[in-house]
């Protein structure tokens, strides 16, 4: 990583101006990922003076500042109570404590990592992103954008919806990237997210539609839903696994996860 100039922004506006001054200027999250990259950075903009490292509980949502570290998020107990520890489990599967003390929520979202174990649960929690310039948008919309905006992420909002959850990361060791990850969140309706396909996390829309319109949930319905999932969720191969294996893992954990969160007898 090469940085020509370090700049500690005084206000978000200041950071935003700086960011757009030069195409090779960049925002520093925890800079862990940036360190792995080789593209030279002209001005590295530090947001750490902007108090974006707080988690607030509003009536309709939890507001997670973009500079909140993965450890801070890991310790957000009331959030985990609401989400049946979904985020907590996913965070526990990301590297070690010292690492999580540095990596930020903002960097994890903006990086749009295909292997991300955080984006998948955020998807099923219907997270919204608050950008300084572009304002609020759904995480799904952000992931659909061809190129991420040259904007500053202020926070991630998670609507206060209580539900049951399932999370699974399949990997070679806990410190490895996922071969596949899966998040399921059920309140009135059920949301299912799949990541590291190896493509980036996505909602299993067809499957969700089927389940959310089913009259009752039993094993047959779940099996049918899984079948739909396998047909509609795009999987592929990479260094970590081939497609056929991903499919098998997806099939198994979709079923196990659904049985668990749907509270249905095996």
């Amino acid at each position: 990583m090469q940085i020509t100039e370090y700049y500690k922004a005084a206000t978000v506006e200041d950071a935003y101006q700086r960011l757009n001054l030069d195409s090779s200027n960049a925002i520093l999250g925890g800079a862990l990922w940036l360190k792995q990259t080789s593209k030279p950075i002209q001005t590295a903009i530090d947001l750490s003076a902007l108090k974006l490292n707080v988690i607030k509980q509003e009536s309709a949502y939890f507001e997670i500042g973009s500079m909140v570290t993965l450890s801070q998020l890991y310790d957000a107990d009331s959030l985990h109570q609401m989400t049946d520890n979904l985020l907590k489990e996913s965070l526990a599967s990301i590297m070690g404590v010292a690492f999580r003390n540095m990596a930020t929520v903002g960097g994890s979202v903006i990086g749009r990592f295909a292997f991300s174990d955080l984006i998948t649960p955020l998807l099923v929690l219907q997270a919204e992103l608050v950008f300084y310039h572009q304002g609020q948008m759904r995480l799904t919309a952000f992931l659909d954008q061809k190129k991420p905006p040259k904007d500053i992420l202020i926070s991630v909002r998670i609507p206060t919806i209580k539900g049951r959850a399932f999370f699974k990361k399949v990997s070679n060791t806990v410190l490895d990237f996922s071969i596949l990850n899966l998040a399921i969140f059920k309140h009135e309706s059920v949301l299912i997210g799949v990541g590291a396909r190896p493509g980036i996390g996505t909602l299993a829309q067809a499957m969700m539609d089927y389940l959310n319109h089913a009259d009752k949930i039993d094993e047959t319905v779940i099996n049918e839903a899984v079948e739909i999932g396998l047909q509609t969720i795009q999987l592929s191969h990479n260094q970590r696994a081939q497609k056929a294996y991903r499919k098998q893992v997806l099939k198994t954990y979709l079923k196990r996860g659904l049985i668990e969160v749907m509270n249905c007898e095996h």
């Binding site: 792995q36 070679n172 060791t173 806990v174 410190l175 490895d176 990237f177 260094q239």
Partner: peptide, 12 residues
């Protein structure tokens, strides 16, 4: 690197 070459951790 240790991202792409995994050695056992204390949980393995």
């Amino acid at each position: 690197d240790f991202l792409s070459y995994k050695i056992p951790t204390c949980l393995d």
